[in-house]
Design a protein around this nucleic acid. Structure first.
Lengths: 332, 332
DNA sequence: TTGTACGCGTTATCAA
DNA sequence: TTGATAACGCGTACAA
């Protein structure tokens, strides 16, 4: 039905070996025969079967991306960088979205064996040592983005420092009662965005000699509703905070909604700072701690490609920095 | 290095045929031997190689999604439905993002031959008859979502009626000078969202006996900046419109920005209606024509799966309806 | 420079 | 119920 290398060989009156050599433009083939083969290929509209090819070469020409809830704006931004980088390498992008722990475990255990991808980029998910070891063992290149493992090349954002930037700014402009709405800890791993951001908050407060008040900290879902609920909680206490730092922009949007419905003016009566720097933060004039999201995706892929070319390459730990962006929700 | 079916056969002391039968739980295998095989599989941590499998079965267990600029919110929403549906089928998702006509043509011409996917879902891109014919010819199942071809199963939104809904509403609440900011026509295909929405605008005006004024129509890029620029254009004319209907929410956001910087109050001095119903429209209180985006993705995949199971299934044309959503930018 | 034969890891067919 | 063997379409030694 579909033309194979044999058909081409027959039409061109050569052996399949020669056709193969022409396809992979191996040097040792006489110009005359090459022309004949090329013509036969053209005539039949022949394309090498990539499945059969990867059967031999052990290369699939596609790379896998594992992300939790890739529909969240943060992942979208990273994914955009990933996609662009992958396209420049001419690879295909296989997307594994994981919503549950089961899906994650399934991905982590099966992917290494499958070899349906030449490499894997894992987003915001830190595999434990056992899983990481397995990836190494089977020789499947892996890069972690926004996640960390000592055994795997990791690109991490300095979450702690980012949170500190936000708190230092708020302290500097005079706030003393600062609320912190964190995201809930997803998964039971050591590297965790929520944990690190909380750490950064504590640190910055301590440096400034301001007491840390656990009553002002709430952890909620990483979404708008979570942010809104938490904000209601914080803003309806007897003594409410004069500023709230939120662990993600999307939650911060919920905070703004809560403030509006409570008739609390932003920034006059309440300063709000988010985290991430997704598009909506710019739209709403939300001050935020900007992550280099696009860059994370792109660099992650570049690292992965070098790893694919040189699997023996030792794991690296790459730190990326955040930038505080001052907008309308803080500057009165 | 990695265990194969031969290793399993050797350890279990059976032939590879038997192992294969156990894997695909074919009935005719004695419980005793099945147990031995299962044990060997477990011992070796053996997983069948999917590449070798699809070499024979001609099934890759993954489906391709072609989308232009999948990073736009509209595509994200559809993609979310797509992803969820694909997950329920246990398939893998291969994402082809196309930004240029070359990439599109490349996708359309290569994918059918590759057979690296069992089926393709094409988003917002209408292949011409020649390309469609090719898909049919090689027997690769295709479903079009938000796009149309007479030769392929297509899920389309009633763009014309949607635009009419918006205009009828604006007319009903008293507007007579209604501006229309359209998206530019991308690609030279017959089915086109921009064209249909313009048609709907004209129709609704005509029905109401209101003259259509070409001066009030501007076509721009499908993004915020495009919307903003177009709005500046419309709003700085001597007699400006009292309402603007915008072909996408993302452009409408730009319109709102323009109105704000021109100190034109919304909705008192200017009513704004978008199209799409992406999350941000809800956030900003933007009145809009809601598309059933998630549903489009899900239904598209379901249709594709039935097509994969029954390739002879004739192409269908499925219409989906929009819903007008009234929010703050129109209701004074 | 070119053709042949083998192997990649499966599934499917056919005898036994 | 089972095992050997032939495909599947390609890359690649090896021989010519």
């Amino acid at each position: 039905m579909m033309a194979t290398i044999h058909d081409v060989a027959r039409i061109a009156g050569v052996g399949i070996g020669t056709v193969s050599r022409v396809i992979n433009n191996s040097s040792n083939v006489k110009p005359g025969t090459r022309a004949r083969v090329l013509e036969a290929i053209d005539q039949l509209g022949y394309k090498p079967n990539p499945i059969a090819r990867s059967m031999i070469s052990k290369r699939t020409n596609s790379i896998g991306v594992i992300a939790p809830f890739f529909t969240r704006p943060f992942f979208m931004e990273v994914l955009q960088g990933v996609e662009m980088a992958i396209a420049t390498y001419g690879k295909e992008l296989v997307l594994y979205n994981v919503r549950t722990d089961e899906q994650r475990d399934h991905c982590f255990s099966d992917l290494p064996m499958h070899r349906k991808v030449d490499g894997v980029l894992i987003l915001s998910l830190s595999p434990d040592d056992e899983v990481a070891q397995k990836f190494r063992h089977v020789g499947l290149p892996v890069v972690l983005v926004d996640a960390y493992s000592p055994l795997l090349t990791s690109l991490v954002v300095n979450n702690k420092e980012g949170a500190s930037q936000a708190i230092r700014y708020l302290l500097q402009v005079g706030h003393r009662r600062i609320g912190f709405i964190n995201g809930i800890v997803e998964g039971n791993f050591k590297f965790n965005q929520a944990t690190d951001r909380l750490e950064g908050v504590k640190c910055a407060l301590q440096e400034a000699g301001v007491a840390f008040d656990p009553e002002l900290v709430v952890a909620t879902e990483w979404n708008r509703v979570g942010g809104r609920d938490a904000a209601f909680h914080l803003l309806t206490r007897e003594v409410r905070p004069s500023a709230i730092f939120v662990a993600s922009d999307i939650q911060a949007v919920g905070v703004l909604e809560a403030a509006r419905s409570l008739h609390i003016r932003v920034p006059e009566e309440l300063a709000v700072v988010g985290f991430d720097g997704i598009e909506i933060s710019e739209l709403l004039g939300l001050s935020t701690v900007q992550q280099p999201m696009r860059q994370m995706g792109e660099e992650g892929i570049h690292k992965l490609m070098t790893l694919i070319d040189d699997p023996a390459h030792p794991p690296e730990l790459i730190w990326l920095n955040t930038t505080f962006v001052e907008r309308a929700t803080t500057s009165g």
